[in-house]
Amino acid sequence: MHIPNGFIPLWQCAIYFVILIVALYFSQKWARKNLDEKSVPLMAVLAAGIFAIMSMNIPIAFGTSGHMVGGALVALVFMAPEAAVIIFTLVLLVQGLFFGDGGITTIGANVLNMGIIGGFVGLFTFKALRKSIGKIPAIAIASWLSIFLAAEAVAVEMWLAGTFPLVPGLEMMGLYHALIGIIEAVLTVVVIMGLESVRPDLLAWNRKKNVEEVKSESMEAAAK
């Protein structure tokens, strides 16, 4: 779902770049507070992994292809959408500059869709569902929804740009990515549960558990 050069008028690209700069500002603030020595290799590996999965278009139905994104994956590993903003900015820069996958003028919009929307939707859907339906189904639904809504955001941006009519754009982008979303959900569950079994110390939800428990306990106490 990389928007190429020429699909968005330049003045609109400028708006997406402003959004990107604001998002990067908050993300570097988050990083300075939360990224430690251990996060450095993890960040590097995730960037390479996201590059690899986003570069490979898998055939899907209707004569189209699509790739996984991993916005929810990154946000869930760090329990922070800010991490997705940083990683997707790097990966989309490399894809756009070296491989012509996604435009240069559209990097702002592409990071918005895959990193910001993908990361936020993934993380907050997971947080909303984790307690009621359990960890694994919550990861699956969160990652499916993150790629689906990212695709629908692309359709809306294409409509604002005057490139696609709204309804057919929403329908087609939605349909294709609802299918890719299934692969995305499987991959996200496999990677996160894999990390959980070999390196649980890397997952933010294990690290922050104590802090969160203390917080919710103190909030409960305050409520009483």
């Binding site: 899907i60 209707f62 292809s65 012509g100």
Partner: peptide, 28 residues
């Protein structure tokens, strides 16, 4: 990997006349 157009390119082919602009040539 599939050389079929991706979801976005396919939608563009079907419902739009917009073409990718060649303002930037990537090395690979």
């Amino acid at each position: 990997a599939s050389s079929n157009p991706d979801g976005l390119e396919k939608t563009a082919e079907d419902v739009s006349t917009t073409e990718e602009s060649g303002i930037y040539e990537a090395p690979m």
